[in-house]
Design a protein around this nucleic acid. Structure first.
Length: 443
RNA sequence: GUGGCCUUAGCUCAAUCGGCAGAGCAUCGGAUUGUGGCUCCGAAGGUUACGGGUUCAAGCCCCGUAGGCCACCCCA
């Protein structure tokens, strides 16, 4: 075992992982741009208060999962690594006066999040989220637009079957009364509650609702439902969101017991799961409306909605459904040419020829080790290179051998024409390959 | 944060009752001094996660720690 290893709950993304993650990031960025979202980046860490105020102090994310940074000075500011992107983006919205921009302000960010949680498969202390936020639009149309965007992302990423759970959890006008009613309901049945649920009763009764404890399943089924207690405005909003989703033919499942783990959510709330894996660490993403958040963080009352999609989990789900490496793990483009030579020691010429090819815009590699030609060619072939440029005695007359590694044929080419010849050869080569290359992420 | 299972070479795994730490793959080299993926041969790679304990003797038994995983919890 090495003396040092990646910190608990973190992992190194090796080239294959980083490549696959990069494809998901690129997909998110491309979609977000197409839907009119603009890129933003906020700091990796914020004042703790940004998260406490925004997310809510009585949430697991704040109480036990916040990744706190040790301050250098006793009276210094308290900082924490971001556990989610929304609070920081809304903080930026307020700080930069984005309420004076044309509304809504639509922002997107793909970034690493941090939660000091106990690690498990699919649950890391550092993980990637593709996030979009539409601030300044009360909906309901934008609610549907955002859910449709999430849905399209999963489809294009290659997730074959997923379920969107949808709920409305009311707003300041109706949720307090509902929570009071729910608390009263559970208080009557306090004797039937397991210890964990009992401890939640007075703090956040909503949490009891989505308990997986079998012993209170019946109790939960009989509990009053949020959706039956929405005020007229919330009920109308929720109905309109569903109407828009139906019109867009986005399938969803109503889940009246869905509550989100962050306090800032109002009205629309949704979570996405791979089909048939509705528990554990499998949620692929989630989001919702946060009409009170901008004000909580010091801005004017402004509605907003957004989602965060867990890219690590999308990757896990893709590999799971393929039973290993899937389309997302398509190999990296191979170098067109590798420059090898009969004189192992002559790295100068090999490097110079490769450099010229690169300057001409070609993907080329030179064998810089001093092994003999056979080994050089062997390495070039295993690299997946299409062509080998072989430097030998012909160099004296200005020629090199251009060898097609797949066909096993070669011909002499003047060094001066090498870039042009290689360019032409690689184009016909690529055309020949196009047929059996799978389209990884298409609509 | 709670409970449980696991940890042997870079990877996947062997190792009889507690009795010499091994294989396949991968890596590097040779067969092959100017021609590749196959094949054959060889080399390198280990504080058996770490720290204690029991024993003539520990990869194996006991205790602790770390990490991973599973179920909770929570979510992404």
């Amino acid at each position: 075992m090495p003396a040092f290893r990646a910190p608990r709950g973190t992992r190194d993304l090796l080239p294959q992982d980083q490549l696959a993650l990069g494809r998901l990031r690129a997909l998110g960025e491309e979609l977000a741009q197409r839907y009119g979202y603009h890129p933003i980046a906020t700091p990796l860490f914020e004042q703790v208060a940004v998260f406490e105020r925004g997310i809510g102090e009585v949430t697991d994310v704040i109480e036990k999962e916040l990744f706190l940074l040790a301050p250098r000075e006793e009276d210094g500011e308290r900082w924490a690594l971001r556990p989610e992107p929304t609070a920081g983006i809304v903080r930026a919205y307020v700080q930069h006066g984005m309420q004076t921009w044309p509304q809504p302000v639509k922002l997107t960010m793909t970034a690493e999040m941090f939660r000091y949680d106990r690690p498990q498969a699919g649950r890391y202390r550092s993980f990637w989220q593709f996030d979009v936020e539409a601030i300044g639009d009360p909906g309901p149309a934008v609610d549907a637009e955002i859910i449709e965007l999430a849905s399209r992302f999963y489809r294009r990423a290659g997730i074959k079957a997923f379920t969107i759970l949808l709920n409305s959890i009311g707003d300041a006008a109706c949720r307090p009364a509902y929570v009071a009613e729910l608390t009263a309901y559970y208080r009557e049945h306090v004797g039937e509650l397991p210890p964990l649920e009992r401890s939640r009763l007075e703090r956040n009764a909503l949490r009891i609702l989505d308990s997986k404890d079998e012993s209170i399943a019946a109790l939960n089924a009989a509990a009053p439902k949020v959706t039956d207690r929405l005020c007229d405005a919330c009920a109308a909003h929720f109905a309109a969101v569903r109407e828009h989703l139906d019109a867009l033919e986005v399938a969803y499942t109503l889940e009246p017991r869905l509550v989100r783990g962050l306090d800032y959510y109002t009205r629309t709330a949704f979570e996405i799961f791979p089909a048939g894996a509705m528990g554990q660490q499998s949620a692929l993403g989630g989001g919702g409306r946060y009409d009170g958040l901008v004000e909580l963080l010091g801005g004017r009352p402004t509605p907003g909605i957004g989602f965060g999609l867990g890219l690590d989990r999308v990757l896990l789900a893709l590999r799971e459904q393929e039973g290993g490496a899937g389309a997302i793990d398509a190999p990296e483009p191979t170098p067109v040419g590798v420059v090898v030579g009969s004189d192992p020691a002559d790295t100068v010429t090999r490097l110079r020829v490769a450099t010229d090819l690169r300057a001409a815009g070609l993907a080329a590699r030179a064998e810089l080790g001093q092994r003999k030609l056979g080994k050089q060619l062997e390495a070039a072939a295993r690299d997946g290179a299409h062509f080998a440029v072989i430097l030998g005695d012909e160099l004296a007359s200005g020629n090199v051998q251009l060898r097609d590694l797949e066909a096993g044929t070669q011909r002499a080419v003047a060094l001066a024409d090498l870039a042009r010849e290689l360019q032409r050869a690689s184009i016909s080569h690529r055309h020949g390959l196009a047929a059996d290359r799978p389209e990884a992420m298409s609509d």
